[in-house]
Amino acid sequence: MSFDIALIIDSIPKMLMGIGLTFQLLFLSLALGTALGVMLLILRISGRWYLSWPTMIYIYIFRGTPILVQIFIIYYGLPQLEFVRDGIFWPILREPFGCAIVALTLNTGAYLSEIFRGGVLGVDRGLKEAGSALGLSVTDRFIYITAPIAIRLCLPAYSNDVVSLMKSTALASTITLLDMMGIARTIVAETYAPYEVFISVMVIYLIITWAIQRTFGWIEKRMSRHVRQ
């Protein structure tokens, strides 16, 4: 057994060709998942049981099952159903990329809505009351008081979730996508050199994690200067 430096030098550029796909998966499902998370949050705290209950069940299911199983259900499972094949979303669900985005979005949306809810619940009741006492409407209170403070409060958890999401993008390799992980697996299958290849790709992932944490650390520092928990 030896450590093949040449192989590392050879495979890193190949794996970096997949970084674009990794980033596409990350940013697209993060944007969509954030929007979904906000929607779920609003339904959840609407105070109407017929809106909040289904939301809670949705969140419960998506947080209670493995993301890999969710990916498999969407990619391998849904085509079994005729109405899916005839439906308007078929062009998206036919492609592994579309399926990965859908799965990652649905999953991360469930987690994010709970994170957002934590932030909203963390906002001091007195501040909402002060808003009420000034005559602000429910909507204005949410937009100008609750939301901006809640965002600051849940930034650390949000940043952790972005890292989790980034790690989950590697599961796209299980449905034939050639993201960084997918390429790494292909190279290992050809060369049978797991240490060299997997450790190299691991380093790339660690750098991305580090960059995510640094970015959010910076945003947090800037935004939360005056807001303490």
């Binding site: 007195g126 501040l127 002060a130 009420s132 000034l134 005559g135 807001v227």
Partner: peptide, 20 residues
């Protein structure tokens, strides 16, 4: 209620200024 609230000012023990 909104009409009343905008005509009645309130000051709280804990200030409740908007920190952001």
């Amino acid at each position: 209620i909104d009409a009343v609230r905008s005509e009645v000012g309130m000051v709280f023990q804990s200030f409740n200024l908007f920190p952001h």
